[in-house]
Design a protein around this nucleic acid. Sequence first.
DNA 1: TTGAAAGCGCTACCAG
DNA 2: CTGGTAGCGCTTTCAA
Lengths: 325, 325
Amino acid sequence: MHTIKDVARLAGVSPSTISKYLNGGNVREENAKAIRDAIAALDYRVNPFARSLKTQRSRAIGILLPDISAPFFGTVVTALDKTLRERGYHTLISCYSANHALERENLRYLLSTGVDGLVYIPEDLSAEEFYELTANYSVPAVQIDRVIQGVASDAVLVNNADAVYAATAELIRRGHHRIGLISGPKSVSSAKERQVGFLRALSDYDILFDEELFFSNEHTFATGYQGCEALLSLKNKPTAIISTNYDITIGLVTAIRDMGLHIPEDVDVFGFDCKDVCTMMKSPIPVVYQPEQKIGQTAANYLIERLQGYNGQPRTTRLECSIML
Amino acid sequence: MHTIKDVARLAGVSPSTISKYLNGGNVREENAKAIRDAIAALDYRVNPFARSLKTQRSRAIGILLPDISAPFFGTVVTALDKTLRERGYHTLISCYSANHALERENLRYLLSTGVDGLVYIPEDLSAEEFYELTANYSVPAVQIDRVIQGVASDAVLVNNADAVYAATAELIRRGHHRIGLISGPKSVSSAKERQVGFLRALSDYDILFDEELFFSNEHTFATGYQGCEALLSLKNKPTAIISTNYDITIGLVTAIRDMGLHIPEDVDVFGFDCKDVCTMMKSPIPVVYQPEQKIGQTAANYLIERLQGYNGQPRTTRLECSIML
DNA sequence: TTGAAAGCGCTACCAG
DNA sequence: CTGGTAGCGCTTTCAA
């Protein structure tokens, strides 16, 4: 592997001139040509470590998220990666598997790695912890999908409450009065907002909320499955159930099938995040669809602006979900 | 941000001793304690750029893949990330969106970034190109899911031919004699192997292969959808169709639903990769399930061995798929 | 516009 | 076991 000195020697100029050329400075055309040739001849590439040691920037963005196997996160990450890459940044992904200890550890690790910015989907961190962990790194962060209460950073969210409100209202319009909700952990802001939308719709339609009809746990297949079993074994069971995430939806539908019940005759269902799967079914399930690409793009742009020196107040974007009936 | 010199000063030892301590060398317990205290007091962290400049290693592994939104890749990546992280490596993901130009560009980029190793799911590179691009970096690579013909690297694959053979045989046993196959690009080795398994089963059961029943294109929803339309509009249409990937399966099932047909009465279907979705359905679809976690773990271990100096012949692991009926 | 030289923070050698 | 020191490859003054 050749160094900048080799190029300098071959091109007949000094290393500083090569550096200037490499970083877009003005170089006499005659020299520029010699440098181009030398670089090509030696197949020279800058050493990223040396450059980063000097500049203290890595042009890498860390993405910290709970799970990457769900299509929702996969699509968001793909969009993030694409947008960032177009601007010369690459992405460093760290997945904490919804494990709270790992969430802290991986955040620490990602930061220690020298990333220039952070995209974060939090689950169990407090604002104090977040500030403590990030204190020594002045790294811009953008939270997506959910936020830690009290952390003032850019954020890209969706209108969770409105989306679930609309889903609930639709089921009520279809004649349902006992509606169950299976939702993620109460500590997760998006799950909480989805719950709020649910309650608001019930209230607006003069339906008394029955605590029994609310099931909350991790964002997993098992939660969907067990939540369904629990709700449908109630004395006074719901006639419809709303899911609030991809895995929960799959678990819910599977449980209904395993119980020998039919959608929508025996139980009606509102899905979340799994547009393709829900619309694929023999009797398609209505579903809340989040603008996954847009979330990734917006977050990437926020970050890039910060990295270019923008220093204004934290901003929040709320994107609209679509309801596919 | 403090440096190793600050720690040395505070602990009353030299920077070399700090370095030794940091890298697991022997240090007198008395000094070790002073160093520990100093590190804690200053909240010192090693500068990864300086370390990498010196050692020329980044402890980062690049993962280059065509797509990350499908659960199959997401799960494989999660397993890779987990295993590598446990061994002190982090992952740098680059997604080329099944775009051939981007595949080359991102490979180049990932390498230039200074990764220590590479996990690669190739799609359109020739062996010559691969060797040319990687020539200047002596970086161990492991191919997964598929391989480039002629590239001698470690590889982790599944028994594609056997899996599709089993699927085909099962459909034949169920009484089907005209079976369609919707498969990925012929340039992709795993797609080719799946086709081979299909043909072998037909042949073993004395069924003449009809070229009309074979549809091949990108690994997308659209391919599944259009393939289904094409196959089912044949004069002599198939009574069953085999899919060979997650997105194709979803597209295929959606098309069948859109045509007003029923599974399995009108067409029987064999799914691929989407275990949860296929087993969720009212009449569950049989499906080929790849050991996603195992693929990631095995690949990570191959790489780690190479990074620790193992220098033997390239190895290939063929993992078994499960057939869920 | 160009070049000389300092130095980013760390590791590794070698001498003690 | 410890410490002094050279130097990894680059960028960035500053002077010419």
